[in-house]
Write a protein that binds this DNA or RNA. Structure first.
Lengths: 235, 235
DNA sequence: AGCAACTGTCACAAAAGTGAAACAGTTTTG
DNA sequence: CAAAACTGTTTCACTTTTGTGACAGTTGCT
């Protein structure tokens, strides 16, 4: 996401005037803004433009903003996409509900564009490290996302593309157990047609690559569940 | 940070009544709360308690909240620590300034405790995903449902799938007695065809796994009734 | 084209987990 | 106290799940 230096924003807002205002301010901040006023369209656009940030109005045509949010969180591909919700509904319960559904921030209209931008920046500052920026590490493993290079205890580790993506996924969610199905969905580009057991094979390749120098295995097999990246493997 | 399952909050607020209120609500969410009303002290405490989240009032004695925030961001050790700022100053410029200084969220008094919690959770969800993992505890046993891992007194416990489900069921209903029949029905996938006595065997395996280090038995046998997870086995 | 790296599947081996049966031990009852 | 009723333990055959090595088809590069 967010290649060649441009930050991409998807704005989902059906009030044209407001949309223009927001657009203007974000454009000035260097964002490429795509916008729509319809919920269903938002879901398609997200797939298309791969935004770095989504701003969602609650009340829009078609699928509601909160429902869009829920769906984005449910799909592995967008589960960690930064989302800000926007609404005229000022009720506390709405705000809590929005946040609990997975929104990262919740702004009530009317709001100041400056604050919106400041909040967007705060959010990106926080979530970028995981998506865009430099390094991930866990227990002696260091993955440099820019250089596309992995080291363990300082020593370089050679990984194929799939193993790299797999490890990256684990590093982004250490200790968490993923089923083979989940791994396929979040690590493989076209997960549909692929055999579940293929995951095993790649996990094995990853294990071998990570343990080249007789280091202990960091990938834990959770029988009948899946795998996780975990320091104390067996226990 | 945030080891052994407890989430730690450092609250920096000099309004005693407000501090108590916030404390109360976060404690209910499972946080261990440390608090102070003095800026300088905050910096020391952060080093000491290694909180997972800091809530900073802007106007406090000594070093101001915003200055604390700035310093935290400057030091590598705390640069990515989640920070929420709190203030009575409702000015837009203040909010923007707070966010630009590195705060992750900015809440204006008066605020609702529920929203504060919801925002804290949203922030932690993004920055410390492990902390939000759902956990079950009882008498020194801790089951992390996301990592799919069980510990007793901090030490990892190895369980097979059935024992895991069995323990989970007990942890969800501690102290309650279940008949073998009930256990079969709620823990086994296809309970029909299975012998009642099979439960005994698995209970035994669970007991062994949980008592590996000579710890006392937490599963109580209730003669002619069934079993329960219960601290005082005799009773 | 020629080669090397990478992928996805299989088939088979190995490991882990499961359920039942049999017997030993305990507790409750008559 | 002895019989009856239960529960604890051990063992074993069987099933399910994973680990492994080999292989053939792709892809990307030179």
């Amino acid at each position: 996401m967010g290649r060649n230096g441009t930050k991409r924003l998807l704005l989902v807002e059906d009030d044209r005037a407001l949309a223009e205002l927001v657009k203007y301010h974000f454009a000035r901040e260097g964002f490429t803004v795509t916008s729509t006023g319809v919920g269903d369209e938002a879901l398609i656009l997200i797939d298309e433009v791969q935004p770095d940030l989504v701003i969602l109005d609650w009340m829009i045509e078609g699928v509601s903003g909160i429902e869009v949010c829920r769906r984005l969180r449910r799909s592995p591909a967008t589960a960690s996409l930064p989302i800000m919700m926007l609404t005229a509904r000022g009720e506390e319960d709405d705000r809590v509900r929005g946040l609990e559904t997975g929104a990262d921030d919740f702004i009530t209209k009317p709001f100041s564009p400056k604050e919106l931008i400041a909040r967007a920046n705060a959010l990106l500052r926080r979530s970028r490290p995981n998506l865009l920026a430099k390094k991930l590490n866990y227990e002696g493993i260091e993955m440099d996302l820019v250089a596309h290079r992995v080291r363990r205890e300082g020593k370089p580790v050679a990984l194929g593309p799939t193993e790299y993506r797999l490890l990256r996924h684990f590093l982004e969610n250490p200790q968490r157990v993923f089923s083979r199905q989940q791994l396929l969905e979040s690590v493989w580009p076209h997960s549909e047609e692929i055999e579940l057991r293929t995951v095993d094979v790649h996990v094995r390749r990853l294990r071998i690559a990570l343990s080249k120098d007789q280091q202990f295995d960091l990938i834990r097999t959770v029988r009948s569940e899946g795998y996780s990246l975990d320091a104390d493997g067996a226990a």
